[in-house]
């Protein structure tokens, strides 16, 4: 799955297509992820739309969506530490996003021997991506 496809999945799962696509068919012809999400992706560095979606970028997108679109406040306790998730700071720009997404149970760590790792450089499958979106939407529904 690419970054662009993920952004579109997120848009569709969360709120349907933008109103402009329904009223202006020509707009729909140029439907790109960024066109669908100009409101909250502006100025964000999620990577090029054609780029493969990695777990670290998936966490960044989900967390910014939680903050900016769903208005969910960040958790201040229960965040994973370096001792718990050894690679949590490997991607320093992603670290706060990964922390929030792990703490909310939207994404999960993997066990490698005695270590728990986030594995931010691994690709996200379509199935996993949809599951993460589903879990994120539950955060609001359940008022977490």
């Amino acid at each position: 799955m690419t970054v662009g496809e993920f952004l579109l999945c997120l848009k569709e799962a969360a709120g349907g297509e933008p109103e402009s696509w329904k009223t202006k068919p020509e707009a729909a012809e140029n439907r790109t992820a960024k066109a669908a999400c100009t409101d909250w992706t502006a100025g964000e560095d999620f990577g090029a739309e054609g780029e493969v979606l990695l777990r670290k970028n998936c966490a960044r997108i989900l967390h910014r969506y939680l903050q900016k679109v769903m208005g969910v406040k960040d958790l201040t306790t229960g965040l994973p530490s370096y001792e718990e998730v050894r690679d949590i700071y490997d991607c320093r720009i992603c670290a706060p996003h990964v922390s929030q997404i792990l703490a909310r149970g939207i994404m999960e760590t993997e066990v490698r021997g005695s270590l728990q790792l986030f594995e931010g450089n691994r690709e996200v499958s379509r199935e996993d991506a949809l599951e993460y979106i589903h879990r994120m939407l539950q955060v609001q529904q359940e008022g977490r």
């Binding site: 560095d45 999620f46 990577g47 090029a48 970028n57 991607c91 320093r92 720009i93």
Partner: peptide, 8 residues
């Protein structure tokens, strides 16, 4: 090849 933000 990229910045830390991921920009290429």
């Amino acid at each position: 090849s990229k910045l830390c933000s991921g920009a290429s």
